[in-house]
C-alpha cells in the first residue's frame, strides 16, 4: 500500500518536473515569449489602470454637462476647450500655476545645491547621516499638519509677526497670499530636490577636482566648469519632482492661498467634486498633462532619468 503510494507519487513528481523542464526549455528557445510573459502583469496593470483612465479622461473632455440635472450630454464638442482659451480667468490660472511651479523649482535648486554639496563633499560620515536624517524627517509627518503649521506661522498674530515685532519691525501681512504659497511649496518639496542633487554630486570622482586644480582652475572656475555641469542631471531630476508636485497640488492653495490663488488643481477639483462638471475638469486637466509631457521630453535629453 505504502510502496504503491510512493510509486504513484514518484511518477507524478517525475511527470511534473519533466513538464516544468519542457516548458522552461521551450521558453529558453523563444526568449520573446518569456519576455512577453514576464511583462504581461505589469503591462496589463499599466494599460488598464493608467492608460484606460487617461483615455476615459480625454474622451469625456469632449462632452458637456446639463447644468440643471447634472447629466452628462454625450455630444462631441470642442466647447470645453473653447471655454478654457476664451476665458482670461482660465488662462490666468494656468499661467499662475506654471509661474509658481517654476519659482518653487528655482528656489529649491538655490537652497538645495549648497546643502547637497556640503553633504556630499565636506561633511564627515557622521554629519552626513545626521543631515540626511534631518532632510527626510519632515516626510514622516503629515503633509496637512505641516501646511497648517505654516498657516499658524503666517497668521496676523502668528510666530512670524511676533518675531518681527520682537526685533522692532512692523508685522507683515503675508498669510493667505501667493507669497505664502511660494514659501510653503518651496519648504514642502525641498527634500525631493536635495536627494537627487546629493546623489549626482556624490558621483563626481574626486580626481576631477584635482585635475581641475592641476590645470590651474580656481574654486569658482571648478564649480562652474566641472561641478555644475556634472550635477546637472541630478538638478533636472529634482526639478521634475518639485515642478510636477507643485503643478498638481490643490491643497496648499486652499489652506494658505488667498483671493487670486486658484491653481489648475483647484479648478479640476471644483468641477469634479463641487460643480459636478467632469467634462470641463477633464479638458482643464489636459493642460498640466501637456506641460509635463513637454517638460519630461526636455529633461530626457539631459540624461536626468538615470538619476531618478
Amino acid at each position: 500500500m505504502i510502496s504503491r503510494f510512493q510509486t504513484a507519487y514518484g511518477t507524478a513528481a517525475d511527470a511534473l518536473s519533466r513538464g516544468v523542464r519542457r516548458v522552461s526549455a521551450a521558453l529558453w528557445r523563444r526568449p520573446a515569449v518569456s519576455a512577453g510573459l514576464l511583462l504581461l502583469p505589469p503591462l496589463g496593470w499599466f494599460v488598464l489602470i493608467y492608460l484606460a483612465a487617461l483615455a476615459a479622461l480625454f474622451i469625456s473632455a469632449f462632452w458637456t454637462v446639463d447644468s440643471m440635472t447634472g447629466d452628462i450630454v454625450r455630444d462631441w464638442t470642442l466647447q470645453n476647450f473653447r471655454t478654457i482659451f476664451e476665458s482670461p480667468t482660465n488662462i490666468a490660472i494656468a499661467l499662475r500655476t506654471l509661474g509658481i511651479a517654476t519659482a518653487v523649482t528655482i528656489t529649491d535648486i538655490v537652497l538645495a545645491f549648497p546643502f547637497a554639496y556640503f553633504m556630499a563633499r565636506l561633511a564627515s560620515p557622521r554629519q552626513r547621516i545626521i543631515l540626511s536624517t534631518l532632510v527626510l524627517v519632515p516626510l514622516w509627518s503629515s503633509y496637512l499638519a505641516r501646511v497648517y503649521a505654516w498657516r499658524l506661522i503666517f497668521a496676523g498674530d502668528g510666530l512670524l509677526n511676533w518675531c518681527l515685532r520682537l526685533v522692532g519691525f512692523d508685522g507683515v501681512e503675508i498669510g493667505y497670499t501667493n507669497w505664502a504659497m511660494w514659501i510653503v511649496f518651496s519648504y514642502i518639496w525641498l527634500p525631493f530636490m536635495i536627494m537627487p542633487v546629493y546623489a549626482a554630486l556624490e558621483r563626481i570622482p574626486f580626481s576631477l577636482f584635482e585635475a581641475s586644480q592641476d590645470l590651474g582652475a580656481r574654486a569658482w572656475r571648478t564649480l562652474f566648469r566641472v561641478v555644475i555641469p556634472m550635477s546637472m542631471p541630478g538638478v533636472v531630476a529634482g526639478s521634475i519632482f518639485t515642478f510636477s508636485l507643485t503643478l498638481g497640488d490643490y491643497i496648499t492653495p486652499v489652506l494658505v492661498g488667498g483671493p487670486g490663488s486658484t491653481f489648475i488643481g483647484n479648478v479640476v477639483y471644483n468641477n469634479v467634486g463641487i460643480t459636478n462638471n467632469v467634462p470641463f475638469a477633464a479638458a482643464y486637466a489636459t493642460i498640466p498633462l501637456v506641460i509635463m509631457a513637454l517638460y519630461l521630453s526636455a529633461a530626457r535629453r539631459t540624461g536626468a532619468f538615470e538619476h531618478l
Partner: peptide
Amino acid sequence: RVTRYVATGAALATAIAFSVSAFA
C-alpha cells in the same frame, strides 16, 4: 502589441462611460 493594448483599454473605457444612465 502595446498599440493593441492601448486600443483595447480605450474601447473598454468608452464602453464603461457610455453604459451610465440617460437623461434624468
